[in-house]
């Protein structure tokens, strides 16, 4: 026999989608890049990633348990994802204690101080990374030479990134093939373009993100460097702009960092403008700034502008502006 019926306002069905599904979807998309980093940076990559994830989750738990005294949501996947993305932005030979500091800043300042998931203005992983970049510039810009599942790194093999080489006009640039495969110096998650693009395709297929932000960022950077370099050298340049796109954290930033739901605009138009802004800022920092890499700063600056973009670029309303007929 029936007990009491449930009454609620419509709709009465739900898509079954959840925050966890979205977060773990991104997680899956990051697996190829993680495998590549394991291959090239070996044990170091594993340690940095594990420590980063564990300390992000731990800090979130501690803050929710003892400071906020609210609900504990460490299993919604967002802290794990922040940890993973933070690790991807760190060199694999970074001392463990620095990783822990980065995680505490990412979760404590970047996320929980704003009120937790959904309320943060800046991408937590990038807040952590930029904090470390400014506080520990030496450790953060020394990368080990990629090997084949190395267990330890000799100090001497630390090498400069492609971007630094391009900026300083020294050294032999890695071949294009080894760049797309990831055999170059860099933070542990950013090296392999192919793995990152694989993740991008997966997220598009699973409808976790749309193409707007990544494509507009990469497109802007490519066009910027094509124009600037062509104007500089007097002949049409393609190779250098392509190196710009495939090196450094651009793809990681464009595909995984800039597309963070919480800190990116909501309308398609807003997404394109946001992506364009990140692209321009990244290019300007790379070309004219003192840092060889600018994706993190560009994303954080555009994060701050996201509420403004949301206010001014709302989706087109039904029956508004659209020409009838």
């Amino acid at each position: 026999m029936l007990k009491q019926l449930i009454v609620s306002p419509s709709p009465h069905i739900h898509s079954g989608d959840s925050i966890e599904k979205k977060m773990y979807g991104v997680f899956v998309a990051l697996i190829p890049a993680f495998l590549v980093s394991l291959l090239y940076f070996g044990l170091g990559a594993l340690i940095v990633t594990a420590v980063s994830i564990a300390s992000c989750v731990l800090f979130e738990f501690l803050i929710q348990k003892f400071l906020i005294k609210g609900k504990i949501t460490i299993f919604d996947g967002s802290a794990i994802l922040t940890g993973l993305l933070l690790a991807f932005n760190l060199p694999s030979n970074l001392p463990v204690w620095i990783v822990v500091i980065g995680a505490s800043v990412a979760i404590g300042i970047g996320k929980m101080s704003f009120g937790g998931l959904g309320n943060n203005i800046f991408n937590p992983a990038l807040v952590g990374r930029v904090f470390l970049l400014i506080s520990f510039p030496a450790q953060m810009t020394t990368w080990p030479e990629p090997g084949f599942f190395p267990v330890t790194y000799a100090d001497a093999t630390t090498g400069a990134t492609t971007l630094a080489m391009m900026k300083a006009h020294f050294g032999v640039l890695p071949s294009f093939v080894s760049m797309t495969l990831g055999k170059m110096g860099g933070s542990l998650g950013e090296v392999s373009a192919i793995a990152l693009i694989l993740g991008f395709v997966y997220m598009l297929w699973k409808k976790i993100i749309t193409w707007h932000i990544p494509v507009s960022i990469v497109g802007t950077v490519f066009i910027f460097f094509t124009i600037v370099i062509s104007a500089h050298t007097g002949e049409f340049a393609v190779k250098f702009p392509l190196y710009q796109v495939f090196s450094g954290g651009l793809l990681l930033g464009a595909i995984f960092m800039a597309t963070d739901y919480v800190t990116s605009p909501m309308s398609k138009k807003g997404m394109l403008i946001y992506g364009f802004g990140i692209g321009i800022l990244t290019s300007v920092i790379r070309r004219y700034g003192s840092y060889p890499e600018g994706v993190s700063f560009a994303v954080l600056i555009m994060n701050a502008l996201t509420p403004l973009i949301n206010t001014y670029f709302k989706p087109k309303r039904f029956g508004e502006v659209v020409k009838n007929g």
Partner: peptide, 19 residues
Amino acid sequence: MRNCIRCAKCVSACPMGLI
């Protein structure tokens, strides 16, 4: 119910173009 993660799924689903 959880916190809004501003994923904008509702924005792309709304047939009236609202937020």
